[in-house]
Every structure is written in structure tokens, then in C-alpha cells.
Design a protein around this nucleic acid. Structure first.
Lengths: 213, 213
DNA sequence: TGAAAATATGAGGAATCCTCATATTTGCAA
DNA sequence: TTGCAAATATGAGGATTCCTCATATTTTCA
């Protein structure tokens, strides 16, 4: 076993950028690559996105593309990470200063709406998060991300119900969070009308569990 | 638009067998192909399954494989369908003669256990249903299947709560069912210990919704 | 028995991901 | 400024894999 020199892709691990762009020139080019990939995913989905097409649209050679992204998954991962950071901040903010049941009810309800809205509005996020080509590494990122988000919810629950069993609260929060993600994905895939109903039903169920009857 | 002659694969549609094996000989060979595919999926997952390897292990030529399965997805779909039929029968049986709240509680609880057990025991089912390469067509099958299963639950609910709004019951049943599938997939991916806890928590939540407090 | 239908075969076409030897540009120390 | 090392850029082509198709063999059945 040898220490990886830069950050080579291993097993099913996430492949980070092969080399960090240090000069202004390359940083701009990497941005163009990401923008091109994003546009192509929005148009055709990540399955159909071709690396050659990404390079062409970004106005760089295929070799340059692979200079900064070790493989196709890496460029998708890079886009995913941006959404992750963005939504995590949003979630943290929404739940940060919840101090009573009514506050939780409001914050949670709003949070679900925002999350659902994000999926409705962002085809790239939709594709990456519920896309067909999500590989094992991306799923693991997704799971880790979900755990992190659920922890905000756990923190709120522990604050509101200090007497309750801690482990049970963690399980509940994680499950509710995961179900929320599953519901939003489902809602997207069945169309607007039914989707809205499903999200509403989820909210009701989740709130019943979170703040009681 | 022209009527498809046999059952060619279109768009993102499921690709059915290209030609039905009519002779004894070919029926046996198709079985061997499916068995080979199943074994390879169990060993490596459907992503890593190579069509050439399936053919080789089944003892047939690559051409023969494609004579009966129009593409790689079709052979996965064929395997998926078997599990679908199997589990649907099981679900239908479990919920068929539920007539009161206590019966629903018992039947549902048992159903979840069976479903979870099936995922734990069947690597191929696991791979196909929560695998990384599930394509759009397979997801649609999955969704249709889930709807069908949820209908059994809907039927029970309508029987137990004839006064309730019909559309609302349908939404609830579908959502609970989908959440159950999501929970089982999640439970599988986080490992046995935590997985069991999550399934138990799901059961509690779902039953609260199904049979009240 | 013989012809038509069904089945079998595997070389190779086509698409795509990614590598690598080589060329160019940039940063910076002398 | 100059020159050299590091960073960056390039694209032809290696490698892999899915799938087709012309041809050969086997089976069915009138």
C-alpha cells in the first residue's frame, strides 16, 4: 500500500480533482468545464453527457478536461458538492433557532417546501440526486450529507424533548429526513399534481411524529 | 408511427425479450443465460456484469444472448420481473383478509419484516432495486409495481375507514408504501444494526398513521 | 423428405472513456 | 531580462464494452 501522491481515485471512492488549478487561467477553464457539464446535464441528463462534448462546449481539449477531473464521475461530484454546500447552509439556518414546538412546525414545513422547490427548479440537482447513473460513491456522499442534515433536526428534537432517549431521537430524525428526501424524489417523478399531494401528506406525517398530535 | 413488429426497444421503454424461445432447446438456454446473469450480479453487481461474460458462463455465444435479449437492460428486467411477481403475490396474500385494526397491525408488521428479509437475503434483488445502474425504464417498472402493491394497502384502509376521503387514503397508502421501500433500501445500505432500528422506527411511524394511536 | 422457420455463431462496427507523449505557457529566481 | 522548472494544453489513439449481421446449423412440419 502506498500513499497516494495527489488524490488518485481508488475503489469506489469519490474522485477528487486530479490536480488543483493554481493559475488564474486554469481556474477559469475549470469553471467553463463545470458550466458546460452543468448545461449538458440540464439538457440531456448525466447519462447522456459525453466527456468529449463537455470539452468541446467548454472550449478546451479533452486532455485538459482530464487534467483536472480524473474521470466522468468527478465532474458530476464537483457539481453535486456545490449543491450540497448550498442546501446544507439553508437547512442549518432554518433550524438553528427553533425553540418550541410551534417554531419547529413552521421551520420544518418551510424547509420541506424549500427543498421541494429546489428540486423542481434545478434540473441538474434533480439529475444528480435522483438520476439513473448515481454511482456508489455518489450515494455514499448523499448518505453522509443526509446524516449531516438530519443532525440539525436531531439537535432541535433534543432541545425540545430533553427527557427522551437520545438514540431514539437520532434514529427518528434520520429516518424522517431520509423519508423527506425520498418523498421529494418521488414527488418529482410522478408529476406536479400528485407530487404536491404526496409532499403535503409527508409533511403531515412527519410533523405528527416530530411535534406530536 | 408504425406498429412494432415484435417488441423492439424504444426510447426509455423496457425492452422485452426480442423473441420468445419456442423450442425446448432455446428455453433451456435462456434459463442458463438468466442463471448466469443472476450469478454474476450476485458476485459483482449489475454494473460490472459484462454481456460477454454472461454468454460465456451460460455456455452460449454472444449472438445467442442477443437473440433473446435486445440489450443488457432486458436481461436485468427479466430477472427483476421474477422478483416482482413473487413479492406481489406475497403482499397480496398478507393483506387480503385483514378486517380490523389489530389484523392490519399484525399483517403490516409481518409484511415489512418479510420485505426486509427478502432484501437481506437476495443480493440480486438488492442490486437491481437499489443498484447504481437502475435506468429510467427500470425505475418506472419499480414505480408501477409499487403502485400496485400500495393498492392492496389502499383496499384495506378503505375497508377499515369507509367514511374517510378516498383520494386521501390512496395518497397515504402510496406514500407509506414508498417510504417502506425507501426505508428498507436505506436499512440495507447502513448495515444490520442501524438498519434494524430504522425499520423498527418506520414500522412504528407507519402504524401510527395506519391504525391511529 | 425437403423447405421454411427457429436457433446459433463470433468477427467486427461503433461508441465512449481515458492515457500519454509532446508542445506551449507561466511563474520566478538569478 | 533571461532561462529554467512547473504548470498547463493538446488530440491521436489504446482499451473496453455493447451490440449487429451475414452466415451456418438445427428443428419442425406439411
Amino acid at each position: 500500500m502506498e500513499a497516494s501522491t495527489v488524490s488518485g481515485s481508488q475503489d469506489g471512492q469519490i474522485a477528487s480533482p486530479r490536480r488543483a488549478p493554481s493559475q488564474q487561467r486554469s481556474r477559469e477553464r475549470v469553471e467553463r468545464m463545470l458550466a458546460a457539464a452543468s448545461a449538458l446535464i440540464a439538457e440531456q441528463g448525466s447519462d447522456a453527457m459525453r466527456m468529449g462534448e463537455v470539452a468541446e462546449r467548454a472550449g478546451v481539449s479533452i486532455g485538459s478536461l482530464y487534467q483536472f477531473f480524473p474521470d466522468k464521475r468527478a465532474i458530476i461530484w464537483a457539481l453535486a458538492e456545490r449543491y450540497t454546500v448550498q442546501s446544507q447552509a439553508c437547512i442549518s439556518a432554518a433550524l438553528a433557532d427553533v425553540s418550541d414546538a410551534e417554531g419547529l412546525r413552521r421551520a420544518f414545513s418551510e424547509l420541506v417546501d424549500i427543498y421541494y422547490g429546489l428540486f423542481l427548479a434545478e434540473p441538474v440537482m434533480r439529475d444528480i440526486w435522483s438520476g439513473t447513473q448515481a454511482d456508489k460513491a455518489l450515494r455514499e456522499l448523499e448518505l453522509a450529507d443526509s446524516r449531516a442534515n438530519a443532525e440539525f433536526l436531531t439537535a432541535v428534537l433534543k432541545r425540545l424533548r430533553p427527557a427522551a432517549d437520545s438514540a431514539a431521537l437520532e434514529t427518528t430524525a434520520f429516518l424522517i429526513w431520509q423519508m423527506g428526501e425520498a418523498t421529494v424524489r418521488l414527488a418529482i417523478s410522478v408529476g406536479r399534481q400528485e407530487g404536491d399531494d404526496l409532499v403535503a401528506a409527508y409533511k403531515r406525517m412527519a410533523l405528527r411524529e416530530l411535534v406530536g398530535e
